[in-house]
C-alpha cells in the first residue's frame, strides 16, 4: 500500500524538524513506494540523530540477513523417514490402506455373523471346554435315564414309607428297643401279610386282635456270617407272627408284637 508523502499524518508542514519515527518504520515495512523512500533518504541528511538510528537499524537488519550455513540434513531426514516407515510411496500406501480396510471389514462381517448365529442358534455358538463325542452323548443320556428312574423309585419308596403301616412301625419300634438281641438293626422286612384272624398254626387266638406274618431277613457283613446264620436258622430269612389288639379299650397300651411273636423256622 503506497501513500503520498504529504498524505501521511506525520509528514505535515507544521511537524517538527525531525522525521517521524513512524514514517521510518513505514519505510522499513515496505509500505511506501520507492519515490517516497528516496525523499525520506534525502530528508535524513538534515536529521543526523534520525539518520544514525536509521543506519543502526539497517546494520542490525543486514546482520540478520547474513546467510547462515545450514548443514545438509536431507540424507538424515530420508534415512529417518525410511526407518520410521513414514515415507511410503503412494502405491504401497494405497495397498496398505486397502489391506487395513479389508481386514477391518472381514472382522466386522465375522462378528456380525457370529452375532446372527448366536441369536438364531444359541447352542451352536456355545464354546464347550472339551469336545463331546456322540458316543458320550448316548451314554450320558442312558446314565441320565437311570438316575431319573432311581430318583422316581426313591420318591415312590419315600411315599410308601410315609404311608401308615402298623406292622412296619411297630417292628421298627421293637427292633430299636434295648435288650432285643434276637434282632438287630441289620434286620430288614421282606414281606408282610396282614390278617384279621390268627393263622391256622397258631394254638390260640385272642379277640380284637390283628395278626401279621412278617418275613425278616438279616443283612450280614460277609459270606461267613451269612453261611453261619443260614446253618443256625435253616434259611436266609425268618417269619414272625405279630399280633396287636385292635379294640378301642386297649389302645392306650400298644401291643408288643415281639412278645406275642411266634418264630417259625
Amino acid at each position: 500500500m503506497s501513500r503520498s508523502r504529504r498524505d501521511h499524518p506525520d509528514m505535515r508542514d507544521d511537524a517538527p524538524g525531525r522525521i517521524p519515527e513512524s514514517l521510518i518504520d513505514a519505510a522499513m515495512d515496505g509500505e511506501l513506494d520507492p519515490a517516497i523512500q528516496k525523499e525520506i533518504g534525502n530528508a535524513l541528511q538534515y536529521d543526523p540523530a534520525r539518520r544514525q538510528e536509521f543506519h543502526d537499524t539497517r546494520d542490525a537488519i543486514n546482520a540478520l540477513r547474513m546467510p547462515i550455513e545450514s548443514p545438509d540434513l536431507s540424507d538424515q531426514v530420508l534415512e529417518r523417514a525410511h526407518r520410521h516407515r513414514r515415507f511410503i510411496p503412494r502405491k504401497l500406501r494405497q495397498q496398505v490402506r486397502a489391506g487395513r480396510v479389508g481386514m477391518a471389514a472381514l472382522l466386522l462381517v465375522t462378528l456380525l455373523g457370529v452375532a446372527t448365529l448366536q441369536r438364531m442358534y444359541p447352542r451352536l455358538t456355545t464354546i464347550a471346554s472339551q469336545p463331546t463325542p456322540v458316543a458320550n452323548i448316548e451314554s450320558a443320556i442312558e446314565t441320565d435315564g437311570r438316575q431319573l428312574a432311581q430318583t422316581v423309585t426313591g420318591d415312590i419308596q419315600s411315599l410308601r414309607d410315609c404311608m401308615p403301616d402298623p406292622v412296619r412301625g411297630m417292628l421298627a419300634g421293637s427292633l430299636s428297643r434295648p435288650g432285643n438281641t434276637s434282632y438287630n438293626t441289620d434286620v430288614r422286612i421282606v414281606t408282610t401279610s396282614l390278617s384279621a384272624t390268627a393263622p391256622q398254626s397258631m394254638p390260640h387266638a385272642y379277640p380284637h386282635t390283628s395278626y401279621a406274618l412278617v418275613t425278616l431277613a438279616q443283612q450280614h457283613q460277609n459270606d461267613h456270617d451269612r453261611r453261619s446264620a443260614q446253618q443256625r436258622t435253616g434259611g436266609p430269612s425268618n417269619i414272625v407272627l405279630m399280633s396287636w389288639t385292635t379294640s378301642s379299650s386297649n389302645r392306650s397300651s400298644p401291643p408288643d408284637p415281639i412278645d406275642d411273636a411266634i418264630e417259625l423256622p
Binding site: 540434513l73 538424515q76 531426514v77 530420508l78 529417518r80 523417514a81 520410521h84 513414514r86 515415507f87
Partner: peptide, 10 residues
C-alpha cells in the same frame, strides 16, 4: 528441522 521434515514427508 529433521523432525519437521520427517513429519512432513510422512
Amino acid at each position: 528441522v529433521q523432525e519437521a521434515f520427517v513429519r512432513v514427508l510422512g
